[in-house]
Design a protein around this nucleic acid. Structure first.
Lengths: 251, 251
DNA sequence: CGACCACGGTGGTCAATACCACTTTTGAAA
DNA sequence: TTTCAAAAGTGGTATTGACCACCGTGGTCG
């Protein structure tokens, strides 16, 4: 069989269209209209449905708003950033702050029962525990405790973490790509250790984030426990009433 | 011109399809496959595109997962409920609990500087302040303090709030439809009043939700301040790494 | 001059069709 | 019986064509 150039379309027309529209948006001001769907289709040489699919994405992400009968417009920068951030670094940047990190400790211990269950490894499995102080604009923001199976990151040392993002490190040095995760958020108060590290009074209100992430294949990569200062960190979400469906049936 | 039944399609084929599939899902167990897109199209008498659009919705909401080349399957009940809930009642139901409400107080006071700013009214404007205890499965869950301009809800009394949802009341009696809102979440600890009302120890960790909602026209409707018990209420979010676009450009 | 209405353009929905990449199944060959 | 390659079925993408509801506007009529 001839290897006839039937390569996988790494870039689909849809994603291509998306990129083009993104470029377009960057040149426009908030409130400006983008070309009509039909026009875009003609300009970019794709069908209207493809354009719509691409725009659907951007609308869902809040970059555009559609007004039926009127047009599609560049929207107000979304106030509520998606809660599904990827990393501390990115999160802080989005909040307009300069992120930094200081590694407080790095040691290897057996997973133990609790952590073993979270990471889905045997309790005796060696696990690297990394404690980092997270800074934003040179002020303490959070304490983060990472737990990673040692066999995933052989040879990692504290210096590696100072500059690069941990996720970048995982990807570039170890070829581990985080695909998804689940995170729980609870209110808590700081204990003595956390208070002194963060420089806040004992029993200050704080967020407790617990995150477990995994690769696309479903392998658990890390478990992270973070304490965020309640006086500096705040979650903002936008609420949008779903129209229609005034209440789903439950059995 | 003849009034040829050109009525507005209040239910689109897509939403119709969505409902049918929801019915279908209810009869299946987690992990079961639903009929193929082509099959569904034939069965329901709609095109595959319509089926896909309906399934897109359900996949996005986490009820279904697609496996290319294999089929579409009923997914694990979504662990991460959307953070953008609309009301306490709905939120609790989604968590599988029975919501209830007890009105603790209802009085009218001048808005004052702070509240006036939040509601965008004059500081002397009369504002109704409603305090409610929110229950889930007959246990205290939260304290909620509503602030609404009195002129919006003339004649409202405490009894009105016991059965119906406040939002339903707004819609049905006053014709006010909430369209969007913005909410901030902070960690805090309960004060004496909150502790005794909720039945938790003084200075227990809690979530502080502050929500301001508005109509589609942008008119501020209400400002709500809620204290949620940290030991009973927890936020869970799902993190999904966006593939591609390894970082959007910022100007 | 003002009010009204028809028209063109826009997004919203839908159909029918086609091809691709991937997974599962199947059946023939070893 | 085992192995493995082809076939069948699935979701993923894309095109073309069509009609609808809605919005803004410009022209017309009073």
């Amino acid at each position: 069989m001839i290897d006839s150039a039937v390569r996988a379309p790494v870039v689909t027309k849809q994603s291509e269209t998306r990129e083009r529209v993104l470029d377009l948006i960057e040149q426009l001001a908030v409130g400006d209209a983008i070309p009509s769907e039909r026009q875009l289709g003609t300009d970019l040489g794709v069908s209207r449905l493809t354009v719509r699919a691409a725009l659907d994405d951007l609308v869902r992400e809040g970059l555009l708003v559609r007004r039926r009968g009127s047009g599609t417009f560049v929207s107000e920068p979304k106030i509520a950033q998606e809660l599904t951030m990827t990393s501390f670094t990115e999160d802080m940047r989005r909040r307009g702050m300069v992120p930094a990190s200081r590694t407080l400790g790095l040691r290897t211990v057996p997973a133990g029962a609790h952590l073993g269950r979270l990471l889905k490894v045997s309790p005796s499995e060696p696990v690297v525990v990394i404690t980092r102080l997270r800074l934003a604009d040179r002020e303490t923001m959070a304490i983060e405790t990472l737990h990673v199976r040692e066999s995933l990151i052989p040879g990692l040392n504290a210096g590696d973490l100072e500059q690069r993002s941990f996720y970048e490190l995982l990807e570039q040095r170890y070829g581990i790509v985080i695909a998804s995760g689940i995170q729980t958020i609870e209110p808590t108060v700081t204990n003595e250790e956390e208070s002194s590290a963060l420089g806040v009074p004992l029993h200050s209100p704080a967020f407790l984030f617990e995150r477990t992430t995994q690769t696309r294949a479903g392998e658990i990569v890390e478990h992270v426990r973070s304490i965020y200062r309640g006086d500096r960190y705040r979650l903002v979400t936008e609420l949008n009433r779903r129209e229609g469906r005034p209440g789903r049936r439950f059995a």
